[in-house]
Design a protein around this nucleic acid. Structure first.
Lengths: 274, 274
DNA sequence: TTGCTCCTCACGTCACGTGAGGTGGC
DNA sequence: TTGCTCCTCACGTCACGTGAGGTGGC
């Protein structure tokens, strides 16, 4: 029979841990003095404690361990739990390795540039986006700009909220004869069709969700937006990803200055791991 | 200018996160309505948020990130933090891989035995142990048993507390001509020398700490204790460790029955990773 | 009026660590 | 009496998630 202090020293765990396991009913001392509340442990309980510690070491939660101790679990269920835990840890390992790659690419960037460059690219999971949009062929870039202003004219409040977007469905990234989709974010319930100047119509649609988007925010006129694409390209290569799909450009702030230098755009590019 | 709801949708994060980052001063909206408390975010703040998310993605804590944002950190310091984080994660990876090996060996044990065998072996870090001990050559096993009973006679209270231990310093694990160290755990302040029957003396000493001990608890007479050693041997091999040093046997409960079947012993075996 | 968004508490999460404040036996 | 152990609260950790309960504008 050992007191908490003795038992904790022999087991090389903290007294607090023993009291805590008593409190949550994981390991109750065989005897508790009713007047003083002193806990007394028996030598055989070391086996129980070891079992708990071993299961904890496998990564199971105390709740799961209690389940194993009280309700007898079949070996099949035990296998299931362990397999589940194993895949969980394996997934975790992959994430951690990706994290290391990111850190390394960051370190590389610091060393090569000797500057604390802004850290712009972030991975995000993007949910399905209800939009009102129009898809059309644009021979030149100014056609796209015209459609933008037509939308702003038709939906003045949207122009303020800055939820316009643009996608280029063309395979090649040329600046002429582009298959463009242009529109604005909306709610799922909005099913209206909005006519635009020039005979085009905004129609309701839902952009599919994307598991991993590499995103970055660019401030400046449309002509400078390629810098954002370059940044995403460099980042994905350095971090073990590859571009996978067509990008979206999201206007966070429409320009008010004549030169468009106060435009703020978020670029979203689907990526996948190599 | 966006409200929390709009900004959270655009950024694909929760509103709670934005309010929380405001609360802890990580990302304050550029404007807060004094009467309603409504938060308003500017499009440019998306860049700040992205920076925070990117740093978080590297594994930095919000506290560290705030440090980076408020007090400008030099690129050298940044490198230091990232390198530290990287080694931290690498260590973590090793631990997780060891955990997977343990799970696999557990699964193997379940499948081969088709039984939910007791899970006995636990790794522990053992601190330095102040002891009173005697070291001597024992020709036969019964000499060791005699020394045990001499110690119990000299220190009756220790016999109750069950803190006797035994180590075999001999290289080979034969049962004759063993270089034995036998004694009991004590406090660091205890510097007494205890004479035993037979002319031997217990002297104060400190057993060195051991980083990783594979430990198991065995109930039964001394003759059955080899089962514990076998268990540790199998376990270490299956989990990617190797025996490294001399084991300790710790008596958790001295036998009171004549056949010694109520003896409870903990075996501690130093191990290291392969 | 109904529905929608906004707000501020404030508890819950997970497995304990760390005092605070008090007691009992040598 | 001093020192040591034991006890029971109860807060802190980390980064939010999740209601509860109430408000303001269409």
């Amino acid at each position: 029979m050992f007191t908490v202090g003795e038992f904790s020293r022999l087991a090389q765990v903290s007294k607090r841990l023993l009291r805590f396991y008593d409190e949550i009913g994981l390991l109750t001392p065989i005897q508790i003095d009713p007047s003083t509340g002193y806990r007394y442990y028996h030598a055989e309980q070391m086996t129980d404690l070891n079992r708990i510690l071993a299961l904890k070491d496998l990564g199971l939660s105390l709740d799961q361990i209690r389940g194993l101790i009280v309700g007898q679990v079949s070996s099949a269920e035990m296998q299931g739990m362990l397999l589940l835990k194993k895949t969980e840890i394996e997934q975790h390992l992959l994430n951690e390795m990706a994290r290391i790659r990111k850190i390394e690419s960051r370190l590389q960037a610091i060393r090569s540039a000797e500057t604390n460059a802004p850290l712009n690219v972030v991975l995000k999971r993007i949910t399905a986006q209800p939009v009102l949009s129009v898809r059309t062929m644009a021979e030149t870039f100014s056609v796209a700009l015209d459609i933008f202003s037509h939308i702003r004219a038709a939906l003045p409040d949207v122009a303020v909220n800055g939820a316009l977007f643009c996608m280029c469905h063309s395979e090649t990234m040329v600046d002429e004869d582009m298959d463009l989709e242009i529109g604005c974010l909306t709610e799922a319930s909005n099913k209206t069709i909005v006519p635009l100047r020039g005979g085009l119509h905004l129609r309701p649609r839902t952009l599919p969700p994307v598991e991993t988007m590499a995103t970055t925010v660019v401030k400046g006129a449309l002509e400078t937006i390629h810098s954002g694409y370059r940044e995403i390209g460099v980042w994905t290569a350095a971090n073990g990803y590859r571009l996978a799909g067509i990008p979206r450009e999201l206007t966070l702030q429409s320009p008010r200055k004549a030169d468009g230098s106060d435009l703020i755009t978020e670029i979203q590019f689907p990526v996948e791991t190599l």
